[in-house]
Amino acid sequence: MFDLAPDHPFGITALPYGIFSVGGGPRRVGVRYGGYVLDACAVARRLRWSYADLLAGPVLNPLMAAGPDVWAAVRADLRDWLVADPDPALFTPLRDVDLHLPVEVADYVDFYAAEQHAVNAGRIFRPDGPALPPNWKHLPLGYHGRAGTVVVSGTPVTRPVGQFRDPDPVFGPTRRLDFEAEVGFVVGVPTAPGERVAVADFDAHVFGVVLVNDWSARDIQRWETAPLGPFLGKSFATSISAWVLPLAALDHARVAPPARDMPVLPYLSDDARAGLDIALTVTLAGHVITRPPFGVMYWTPAQQLAHLTVNGASLRTGDLFASGTVSGPDRDQWGSLLELSWNGRDPLTLPGGERRTFLADGDEVVITATAPGPDGGRVGLGEVRGTVAPART
């Protein structure tokens, strides 16, 4: 039953946490192992682990708030138990469970950290001006999103309505609904107001990693983003994966960030292994359309967290911050339809002959990802999927 290959993406190296229920029963903390979900609380209570109550559910926040020593202890104990003699009675096939939003999201911040994405957007919207704004290589730009509309993978996304230009202001369903392939980071350990988190303290505060789809209504966004940042064009839905991969599972994925051609201020100085080599894949209507590489992100997650808190803004358990659209240098590595269709100028042709500039009702977008593991294997990050539902008019 549990004879997993050493390089299985959801084997002993991964062990992501989620919240599951069976048949409408209570929500509990689960750990994905192969094609099964392990009832982590049941194991902990049977073996009388001191932190069993942290695994009772219905969200991961109590475990996340407990800090790195507890995170390491839980992970080590689970791995030892799985290697020794796992009890099949404590596992449920993945197909038989319902998965829920794993985290009670406190605040949500989305960054703009991929140079290629920023360049592409600049060339699309400012063709006669500089591709990057003058501050882009000095600090990680971002915006505050809406925590209340963060939803778990599989939740349908209703096409938003709003105001945009055509060419005069009109009101109606967005005509330019888009996805953004991103990676998100979930905060466990909070800070007090006024406290700053140094780049070197990233691992002491961040519990784990999720995949993110920052759904975007480009026409609404374009009209309202003058002069302030995204608002209604982004706030209607942000999807995250049901599984939170512990940061420790990405030890073999740490790499050097891209070379920077401009010095940063001391509070943003990071080390030679601050990047993460995560390979994303995006499918639209069942077809792979792009493979964005997270390793190219100009601003690392540790720099993003340092900048988020440098003014003394406090962290709360459950804070989510996302990378912004992941886009690599090649066209088949761009992480949004805005780029892939060049704002609708160059329609994307799917294998069946259908063409897309932006998303149609009924389209399903699925983002998956893996990262290097030990001995040449890969570690899975789960998936984030969502299907576009028609607007409510």
Rank of each mutant, 00 (worst) to 15 (best):
H117N: 07
V209E: 09
T191R: 04
G286Q: 01
T290F: 02
T349Q: 08
T370K: 05
R126P: 01
T149S: 15
T393P: 15
T300E: 04
P301I: 02
L276N: 09
L54Y: 05
R123S: 04
M64E: 08
T92E: 14
D77M: 03
P140S: 05
A237W: 08
V255K: 04
C41N: 13
L4K: 09
L90F: 04
V264D: 04
A226V: 14
F185P: 12
V157K: 13
I124P: 12
Q303N: 01
V388K: 05
G335W: 02
A52C: 02
P102E: 02
V161S: 13
L82G: 05
A237N: 03
G382T: 01
R95E: 13
F236T: 04
A106Q: 06
V43F: 04
E383D: 06
D77I: 00
A118R: 07
D271N: 15
D77S: 11
A66L: 05
G335Y: 01
W71N: 07
L245Y: 09
I367R: 01
S153R: 11
A198R: 15
Y267K: 08
E180G: 11
D363W: 10
P390D: 00
R345Q: 12
A259H: 12
P62S: 01
L38Q: 06
I278L: 11
G229F: 13
L308D: 06
R291E: 13
R75K: 00
S21C: 05
Y298N: 02
F20C: 02
G30M: 02
